[in-house]
Amino acid sequence: KELVLVLYDYQEKSPREVTVKKGDILTLLNSTNKDAWKVEVDDRQGFIPAAYLKKL
C-alpha cells in the first residue's frame, strides 16, 4: 500500500472529506484525480486536496 505525508492541516468541508493534521502519515487509496486524493484516516475514507499531500 502507498503512504502519503500530510503537509498542512486540513479541515473537512464536506462529508466526503476527512480532517488531517500536518505530519500525519496516511494510507493512499486513490490518486487518479489530480485535485483530490482519497485516503484512509482512522477507519474513515475520504478526500483531501492533493496539494496537501506528498507521496512517500
Results as ranks from 00 to 15, higher is better:
K1C: 14
E2K: 10
E2T: 13
L3W: 14
L3D: 02
V4P: 01
V4E: 01
V4F: 03
L5T: 04
L5D: 02
L5N: 01
V6H: 00
V6P: 00
V6G: 00
V6W: 02
L7T: 03
L7W: 02
Y8W: 13
Y8R: 14
D9N: 07
D9C: 07
Y10T: 00
Y10S: 02
Y10W: 06
Y10H: 04
Y10P: 01
Q11L: 12
E12W: 10
E12C: 14
K13E: 07
K13C: 10
K13P: 06
S14Q: 09
S14Y: 10
S14N: 14
S14G: 13
P15I: 08
P15D: 12
P15N: 10
P15L: 09
R16L: 14
R16D: 15
R16E: 15
V18W: 11
V18F: 14
V18L: 15
V18G: 02
T19A: 06
T19G: 05
T19R: 05
T19L: 04
V20E: 01
K21N: 07
K21A: 07
K21C: 12
K21T: 07
K21Q: 08
K22P: 03
K22L: 04
K22S: 07
K22E: 06
G23A: 02
G23Q: 07
D24V: 06
D24Y: 05
D24Q: 15
D24C: 08
I25N: 00
I25H: 02
I25Q: 03
I25C: 06
L26F: 03
L26H: 05
L26R: 01
T27S: 08
T27D: 03
T27F: 11
T27Y: 11
T27R: 13
T27N: 08
L28M: 03
L28V: 06
L29N: 01
L29T: 04
N30Y: 06
S31H: 09
S31T: 09
S31Q: 09
T32F: 10
T32S: 13
N33T: 07
N33P: 05
K34Y: 10
K34T: 11
K34Q: 11
K34P: 15
D35L: 13
D35Q: 12
D35K: 13
D35E: 12
D35F: 15
D35N: 13
A36F: 15
W37H: 01
W37V: 02
W37Q: 01
W37S: 00
W37M: 01
K38E: 15
K38V: 15
K38G: 04
V39H: 01
V39Q: 00
V39A: 01
V39R: 00
E40R: 10
E40N: 05
E40M: 13
E40Y: 07
E40F: 07
V41W: 07
V41Y: 09
D42A: 14
D42R: 11
D42Y: 09
D42C: 10
D42E: 12
D43K: 11
R44K: 11
R44A: 05
R44S: 05
R44I: 08
R44P: 02
R44D: 03
Q45P: 06
Q45M: 10
Q45I: 15
G46Q: 07
G46K: 05
F47M: 07
F47R: 03
F47A: 04
F47L: 07
I48A: 06
I48V: 15
I48S: 01
I48C: 10
P49I: 06
P49W: 06
P49F: 05
A50V: 11
A50F: 04
A50Q: 07
A50Y: 03
A51K: 15
A51F: 13
A51P: 09
A51R: 14
Y52F: 12
Y52C: 14
Y52P: 03
L53S: 00
L53M: 04
L53E: 03
L53D: 03
K54Y: 12
K54T: 10
K54S: 10
K54P: 04
K54R: 12
K55F: 07
K55M: 09
K55P: 12
L56T: 05
L56S: 02
L56Y: 08
L56V: 09
